[in-house]
C-alpha cells in the first residue's frame, strides 16, 4: 500500500481531538503507512469559501493537493467535508486545463505545482477498498453481534460522485459492509440518507439545525437502535452536541453517536476511555454495557463450541 498523508481538517483538531486519537489508534492497529505532513490549511470549506471567492476556494484546495504531489503520497481524511472538497477541486482542475494553468501560475510562485496525481479518499471507503473487509474481520476480537446500529453516511462521504467515485451516491453500501463486518446489524431506516443539517448552524439558523437533527433522532428513537455510527466531525457535532442541547431542554433521545474509528477500535479490543468515548456529550454507557454483556455471552458460546469441537469425531464412549 502506498504511503498516505492524513488530512485532519480544522474541525477535528479544533473541537474533537479525541476523534484524532481513535483514528490514530486504528491506523496503527492495522499498521497502515500513514504520516502527518506540514503545511496544510483548511481544505477549504466549500459552503464558506466558494460562495465568497470561487477562485480562492480552488486555489487553496489545489495548494493542499500540491503538497501531496510534492511529498508523493496519497491522502486519507476522517472528515467527509475535507475529502469531498479536495476531490471536487481535483476533478475540476483535471477537466479544465485553462484553470489548472492559472492555478499553477500562482502556486509556482510559492514553490508548488498542482499535478493531482495522488488518490484522495475518505477514511470509510478507504478501509473498505484498500484495507478490505477480510482484513477488517481478521482484527475483530470483540464484535458487535446482536447490536443494532444506524449508519449516517454524511452527504460528502459519497457526493458529488463524479469527483469522489467511491460508492453509489443514492444507495451507498460500503459503510454498511464495514459495520456488518464488525458483526452489527446495520439498521435500515427512512431518513438514512437525509443530510444532517449542521450547515444551518453555520448560517445562524440554529432552530432549523435542530429541526433537522430531530428528524433523524426521532426515527432512531422509535426504532430503538443502540447507536448511530458516522464518520464526519460536522455530522458528529450535529448529532452529539445538538442532541445534548435538546436533551437539556427536556427532549430525550438517548442515541449515542459513535465514530467509525471508535467502533472499529472497540471491536479491536481497545478500551473505550483510551479511544476517547468518555469525551462524548451523549453518554455511550448503555451501548457499551450491552456490548460487553453480549460479548460475555458470546464467549460462553465460544466455550461451548470449543467443547463441541474438541469432541468432534473422537467421542469418548
Amino acid at each position: 500500500m502506498k504511503d498516505f498523508a492524513i488530512f485532519w481538517g480544522c474541525t477535528i483538531q479544533t473541537r474533537f481531538p479525541f476523534l484524532e486519537k481513535s483514528t490514530r489508534m486504528v491506523l496503527e492497529g492495522f499498521n497502515l503507512p500513514y504520516r502527518d505532513i506540514d503545511g496544510f490549511t483548511c481544505c477549504p470549506e466549500k459552503s464558506l469559501v466558494n460562495n465568497i471567492d470561487h477562485g480562492l476556494w480552488i486555489l487553496t484546495a489545489a495548494r493542499n493537493i500540491a503538497l501531496l504531489d510534492k511529498a508523493g503520497v496519497d491522502l486519507v481524511s476522517p472528515c467527509t467535508g475535507c475529502a469531498s472538497n479536495l476531490a471536487t477541486v481535483n476533478s475540476e482542475l483535471h477537466s479544465n486545463h485553462k484553470e489548472k494553468n492559472k492555478v499553477n501560475s500562482i502556486l509556482n510562485e510559492v514553490g508548488l505545482e498542482f499535478k493531482g496525481n495522488n488518490k484522495l479518499r475518505h477514511l470509510v471507503p478507504f478501509f473498505h477498498d484498500e484495507v478490505g473487509i477480510p482484513a477488517v474481520k481478521n482484527k475483530i476480537i470483540k464484535p458487535f453481534n446482536g447490536m443494532r446500529i444506524a449508519i449516517h453516511y454524511g452527504c460528502h462521504m459519497i457526493r458529488p460522485s463524479h469527483a469522489l467515485k467511491n460508492d453509489d451516491p443514492l444507495d451507498p453500501k460500503k459503510f454498511d459492509n464495514l459495520i456488518r463486518a464488525m458483526g452489527a446489524e446495520s439498521v435500515q431506516y427512512m431518513t438514512k440518507l437525509l443530510c444532517c443539517g449542521q450547515g444551518l448552524d453555520r448560517i445562524d439558523q440554529h432552530e432549523n439545525a435542530l429541526h433537522f437533527a430531530r428528524l433523524k433522532l426521532k426515527e432512531l428513537r422509535a426504532l430503538k437502535v443502540d447507536a448511530m455510527a458516522l464518520c464526519c466531525p460536522s455530522c458528529y457535532l450535529q448529532f452529539d452536541n445538538n442532541q445534548f442541547l435538546m436533551e437539556k431542554e427536556g427532549e430525550k433521545f438517548g442515541i449515542p453517536i459513535i465514530y467509525f474509528t471508535e467502533l472499529l477500535g472497540l471491536a479491536m479490543g481497545y478500551k473505550p476511555e483510551d479511544l476517547g468515548l468518555d469525551s462524548h456529550r451523549i453518554e455511550a454507557t448503555a451501548f457499551l454495557e450491552k456490548w460487553q454483556r453480549l460479548n460475555g455471552d458470546l464467549s460462553k458460546t465460544t466455550e461451548l463450541n470449543r467443547q463441541l469441537e474438541a469432541g468432534f469425531g473422537i467421542a469418548q464412549l
Binding site: 485532519w8 480544522c10 474541525t11 483538531q13 479544533t14 473541537r15 481531538p17 479525541f18 484524532e20 486519537k21 490514530r24 502527518d36 505532513i37 506540514d38 503545511g39 496544510f40 490549511t41 483548511c42 477549504p44 470549506e45 464558506l48 486555489l59 487553496t60 495548494r63 493542499n64 503538497l67 500562482i106 502556486l107 510562485e109 510559492v110 476517547g276
Partner: peptide, 30 residues
C-alpha cells in the same frame, strides 16, 4: 488559512503528538 487551531493541552492529555505545522504563512503569501 484555517477555521480553528489544534488545542495543545487537550492533545497532551490524550497523548497525541504535536500537530503538524499549518501552512498559514505560505497561504497568506499565496
Amino acid at each position: 488559512g484555517k477555521l480553528g487551531e489544534p488545542v495543545a493541552p487537550a492533545r497532551k492529555k490524550l497523548n497525541l503528538p504535536e500537530a503538524a505545522k499549518s501552512g498559514a504563512e505560505d497561504f497568506k503569501k499565496m
